[in-house]
Design a protein around this nucleic acid. Structure first.
Lengths: 213, 213, 213, 213
DNA sequence: AATGAATGAGGGTTCATTCAT
DNA sequence: CATGAATGAACCCTCATTCAT
C-alpha cells in the first residue's frame, strides 16, 4: 500500500552518509579540533544550520564516523573469519581486511586511529568498547596461531597485538595516492613480516644472532 | 656577579626547557590545536604575555618540541651506532634507543608522532628533513642487515621501515604508567618480533603454512 | 457528518487552547525569550512547522496567552461585581477573583505578570489597554471604599492600587504546589491586610507609634 | 614603600562596576535572556572579547549584579537597624531602606526581582541564600512588631512578608522617571499601609465591615 | 624580564521561521 | 492539516597575539 516500501538506505541516510564522508576528509586533513563545521558546510554545499538537522554536535559527528568505520571493519572481519578454520589463514584474513579497509577508507580510518582521544564521556566509552572488542578478537587470533604452531613464546600477546596494529595503522602515514604497492601485496608483506617474527619464537632470533655474530 | 657571563646552560635556556616540557605535556594530552597557550600560562605559572618572551608563536613552540626531540633521538642513535659494527646489533641499538627515549619522554614523543601535520611552511619542511634523515638512517640499517643475512627478500625496505616505526610508535598508545613491562624487555621483544619476520624471508612463512595447513 | 458545521468550540479551537496551555507552562518556567518553539513542539507532540497553523509567530502566542487570561480575569470580576453593592464586599470580590484565578492558572498568570515587556508594537498596546482597564476598575473600587469609610486619606490611589497588585501578584513567587494555604483563606488574609491599612488612615498609624514608643 | 598604597577601589574594580551598571540597564530593559553581550560591548565601548577579562560568562555577570545589589541592601539595612530599638521604627527603616535603594538603583533592583530564575546551579544557590537571609530578617522584624503590639493575629508571618515584598517591589513597575512621588513619602505611605493592616488585626477589619455593611 | 589589559577573528550552536510536498 | 528539510541571523565564548608600561 505504501507508495515506496522503505528502501534499505533512505534518502536521509544517504545524505547523512555523504556528510560523514566529507567530514571524515576534513578531520583527516586538519585534525578534529582544527577542522571547522563551517568548512563542512562549505564543502558539502549545505547551510551551516542545515547541518544540524543531521547531527547534533561536532562531537557526535566524530563519533558517528568512528563508530561506523569500526563496525564495518569488525563486521567484515567476522564475516571473513567464517570462511577459514586454520589459524594462519584467519590472521591473514584479519590483516587483509584491516589493510584493505584502510586503503579504501583512508580518511575515516585516519580519523579512527588518530582522534580517539578527541572523544569524551559516553561517546568515548562506546568507541572504547568497540575498539576493545576488535583488539580482543585480534589477540584471540594470535593465541590460536601460537597454540597451533606449538611455540612457547614469552612475547606477551598484548604486546604482539599492539605491534601488529602499529604496523597496519602506520603504513599509510604520509601516503600519497597512486604511488604505492597494491593492497593485496602490501597485506601479504605485513602478514609475513609479522608471522615470521611471531611464530619463529626465541630460537630463530638466537640463531640469527649466532649467524650474524 | 657573573650574572651576565653566559653559563653553559643559561637561566634563560633552562626556563625555556621547562616551558617546552610543560607544553609537550599539554599538547600530548589534548592535541596541539585543542591545547591553549592560556593553559600553558596557568600550568607554568607565567603570565600569558610573559610567555612570548621565550617563543614567538604557538607553532614555534610545537616546532621546538619536535626538533629537540628528534635531534636528541638522532644524536643518541648515532652515538650508539659507533659502538657496534654488526648489523643485528646496530638494529637492536636503534630500537632500544627509540623505545627507550619514548619511554622517558612520552609527552614529547607523542607530540612528535602525532602532530607533524599541525606544522606548516618552513617549520614543517625542517621537521620533514630531520624525519627523513632518521628514517633513511633506519632504512640503511635494514639494508645492511638484509645483506648480511643473505636473504633476497622481496619485501620493500620502505615498507619494512614503516612497519618498524609503526610497531615502535604504537606500543605506547593507551599506555598507563606503572602498568607495563620494563623498557629493556619491551625493546628486545620488538627487536625479535621484527627481525624474526624480516630476516626469515619468504621461506619460513611458507614453512609455517605447511606446518599449520 | 457535522464535521464542518462550526460547533461552539471547534476542534480547532480546542487544540489551540491546549497549545496555549502548554506554551504558558513553558513561558512560565523559562521565561518568554528563553523558551523555544521547539520545546513546545516536543511537549505538545506536534511537528515544529505544524504549530504555525495555529499561530503565526511566537509573539502572537505570547499575546494570546496574555489576552485570554486578562479577559477571563476581567470578565470574572465584572460578573462578580454585579452581586454586591457595598464597597468592602466588592473589593473582597476583586481580591478573591484575582487570587483565585492566579491559583488556578498559575502558568498563564505568571506569564501575564512577568512578560508584558516582551511584547512589542500593536500586541503590547492592546495588552496595555486591557491592563489599564483592569487597573482603573480596581482604582475605582478603592475610591468607592474610601468614600464610604469617610477617611480623608492622603495616600494616592494609584500607589494603593500598585501596592495591592504587588501583594496579590507576589504571593505566588516561589510557590510550591501543595505546601500552602487554601485560596479562600489566603484571599481573606490579603483583603484584611490591605483594607486594615487602607481604611485606617493616618491616625491609627500614629496611635500605633504612640503605643509602641 | 609601594608606589601607591592600594586604593579602596582599584581601577579594575571601578571599570567592572561600570560594566555591571551598564549590564544591569540592559538586563532591566530587555530581560536577561533577550539581552546580548554584544550590546553591552557596544554601549560600554569595549570590544566583545575585552569584556571577558572582567567576567567569565553572561551568567556570572547576572550573578554579580544580583549579589552586589542584595549585599548592599542587606548591609544598608543592618546598619540602619542598629540605630533603632523599637519595632515600628525598625520596620520603617527596613521599608525605607528597600524602597530608597530601589529608587536609586532601579535597573539593578529590577534585575534582582525579575531574573532570579535565570540563574542556575551554584549561582542560583548563592543568591537564594542571600534572599533567604534578607527575607528571614524581614520576617523577624514582623515578629517583633506583632509581639510588641500584643496583637494575636492569625495572619501567617510568611504571607505577610511576601505581601510586603510584593508591595515594595511592584511599586516601580511601569515607573516613569520624574513623574512620581518623592521616595521618602512613598516609603512612609507603604509603611502605614502595611502596618495599618498588619497591626490592627482582625478586629478593625470586622469593625470596618460593620461600618460599611 | 614580565605583565595587565585589550582585541579581531573565528569557533560551535540555537533559534524562529519558511516552503515544497 | 501536517510535516521534513532547510535557512539566515544571531548567540555566547575562546583563542593567539599585541602593546604600553
Amino acid at each position: 500500500m505504501a507508495k515506496n516500501t522503505l528502501p534499505a538506505t533512505s534518502e536521509h541516510e544517504e545524505k547523512l552518509e555523504r556528510l560523514l564522508a566529507v567530514a571524515a576528509e576534513i578531520f583527516a586533513e586538519k585534525g578534529y579540533h582544527h577542522a571547522s563545521i563551517r568548512e563542512l558546510s562549505r564543502r558539502a554545499g549545505v547551510s551551516l544550520s542545515g547541518l544540524y538537522y543531521y547531527f547534533s554536535s561536532k562531537e557526535e559527528l566524530l563519533f558517528m564516523i568512528q563508530e561506523r568505520s569500526l563496525r564495518r571493519v569488525l563486521d567484515g572481519l567476522k564475516h571473513k573469519l567464517k570462511r577459514s578454520d586454520e589459524p594462519a589463514g584467519r590472521l591473514r584474513a584479519m590483516i587483509g581486511n584491516h589493510v584493505g579497509f584502510f586503503a579504501q577508507n583512508m580518511a575515516a580510518m585516519k580519523v579512527l586511529t588518530h582522534e580517539f582521544d578527541s572523544l569524551e564521556g559516553k561517546y568515548k566509552a562506546r568507541i572504547r568498547d568497540l575498539r576493545l572488542e576488535y583488539s580482543n578478537l585480534c589477540t584471540e587470533l594470535l593465541r590460536e596461531l601460537r597454540r597451533s604452531t606449538g611455540s612457547d613464546e614469552v612475547l606477551p600477546l598484548n604486546v604482539a597485538t599492539s605491534a601488529l596494529f602499529g604496523m597496519m595503522n602506520w603504513i599509510y602515514t604520509g601516503y600519497q595516492p597512486g604511488s604505492s604497492i597494491p593492497v593485496d601485496r602490501l597485506s601479504e608483506h605485513l602478514f609475513r613480516l609479522f608471522t615470521g617474527g611471531f611464530s619463529s619464537s626465541a630460537e630463530p632470533a638466537a640463531s640469527l644472532e649466532r649467524r650474524v655474530g
